[in-house]
């Protein structure tokens, strides 16, 4: 089997010294985008090959832990001519602050991308202060 070096997309493998993960198979750090809008913070995570049922999102203290397990099977009867991407589970964690309304975190999955919408807590939302005319 030939493994080609692919331009631009490279999955970062999680080594045991980075965090403790149990279970079969390899684990990778998925790529993600984080942006802020006036009302929310949004995290987009690329998790190709993961079903909605195989994603777990846990909020422990200040840590948002995301695990996605791939159900795609390795090649069995096929002859692999070239292989540019690695298949494995995904893990990523983020530390969140009090600026987030934890009860209203939403998550959805579409086309292999997990989007997490973290609404801002009322006290951090931008507010306009009106000037009263006397």
């Amino acid at each position: 089997m030939e493994t080609k070096e692919h331009p631009s997309v490279e999955k970062k493998k999680i080594t045991p010294d980075k965090c403790v993960i149990t279970g079969k198979g390899d684990w990778y750090f998925p790529q993600s985008d984080i942006y802020e809008t006036p009302d929310n913070f949004t995290i987009l995570i690329d998790m190709p090959g993961v079903d909605t049922e195989h994603i777990t999102i846990d909020l422990r203290d200040n840590e948002l832990v995301i695990n996605g397990e791939v159900s795609q099977e390795a090649y069995r009867d096929e002859k692999v001519l070239y292989n540019e991407y690695t298949i494995g589970h995904y893990h990523r964690h983020f530390v969140i602050s009090d600026a987030i309304n934890r009860d209203k975190i939403e998550a959805k999955m579409s086309d292999g991308v997990l989007s997490l919408i973290l609404p801002k807590a009322e006290h951090v939302k931008p507010r306009k202060i009106e000037v009263k005319a006397e």
Partner: peptide, 19 residues
Amino acid sequence: PLDLSETADKVTVKAEIPG
């Protein structure tokens, strides 16, 4: 990134295209 594999009667190409 994509994978290319074959069996006796078919050729399969898989690509990761999240989003």
